[in-house]
């Protein structure tokens, strides 16, 4: 799998490159600013781009802008945005274009190499990887709203893992339950929240995110 990285801090750029290569991914280009990222994704057509939010020249939300622009230049390009902090506002903007292949994670998640590479692969495969903190805040925001309160604690766990973008198999593994149990929970969640059930993992994630983000 071929990856382009945009990260301005040398230590992190180097660390990310080593981490990904240790897991058998190929880093075809590592750049340190937004415009170079857009140029590289056009030139290299990678399977996924890893982008830091704060990049030169503005050191503000350059990464978000570059990610959205890169997706405009190369439609459907999977992009995983990394940041020291997560904002629902940015999550919304990234998801607003629709389609899959979007990730938005705290940089902390890199510490768990296996999980992180899993998220990279998920995004590269057109899936979604939302940071648990984004999901936790979305859930907190919907706390009072009727139908969410009717979910059982286990169903809430399944819902938040689902919103992060995990497949049934991954959820089952995480909660140490069977995949069939997860399927049962998710069916019940979709009925309670009055959502259109879907076998497609990604469409399911987007439906849940759209529901929480209303």
């Amino acid at each position: 799998m071929r990856v382009v990285i945009a990260e301005d801090l040398f230590l992190l750029r180097d660390g990310l490159t080593r981490l990904l290569e240790a897991h058998g991914l190929e880093v075809v280009r590592a750049v340190d600013n937004g415009p170079d990222l857009v140029a590289s994704v056009i030139a290299y057509k990678p399977d996924v781009a890893l982008v830091d939010v704060r990049l030169p020249p503005t050191f503000t939300d350059e990464g978000i802008k570059a990610a959205l622009e890169a997706r405009k230049e190369v439609p459907g390009l999977p992009v995983l945005v990394l940041s020291q902090y997560v904002e629902q506002l940015y999550a919304r903007e990234l998801l607003a274009g629709g389609g899959g292949g979007i990730g938005y994670l705290l940089k902390d998640r890199v510490f768990d190499g296996g999980q992180f590479v899993d998220a990279v692969c998920r995004v590269a495969g057109g899936g979604t990887a939302m940071d648990p903190e984004v999901i936790a805040r979305l859930l907190a925001r919907n706390e009072g709203a009727g139908s969410l309160a009717t979910l059982s604690p286990r169903e809430r766990e399944v819902l938040s893992l689902m919103a992060e973008g995990r497949s049934n198999a991954a959820i089952a593994q995480r909660l140490v339950i069977s995949e069939r149990a997860v399927a049962k929970h998710s069916a019940s969640i979709f009925i309670r929240l009055d959502l259109q059930p879907s076998d497609d993992d990604n469409r399911r994630v987007l439906a849940v995110l759209a529901y929480l983000g209303r």
Partner: peptide
């Protein structure tokens, strides 16, 4: 550190300015 930074000067305020920062507050409000 993240919480501390949020309390000093929220990143979204630095990035986007008052209006988007207020919008982000609204999104975080229950």
């Amino acid at each position: 550190l993240r919480d501390l930074v949020r309390g000093i000067h929220p990143p979204v305020l630095a990035d986007r300015g008052l209006v988007d920062a207020v919008y982000a507050l609204a999104l975080d409000s229950p």
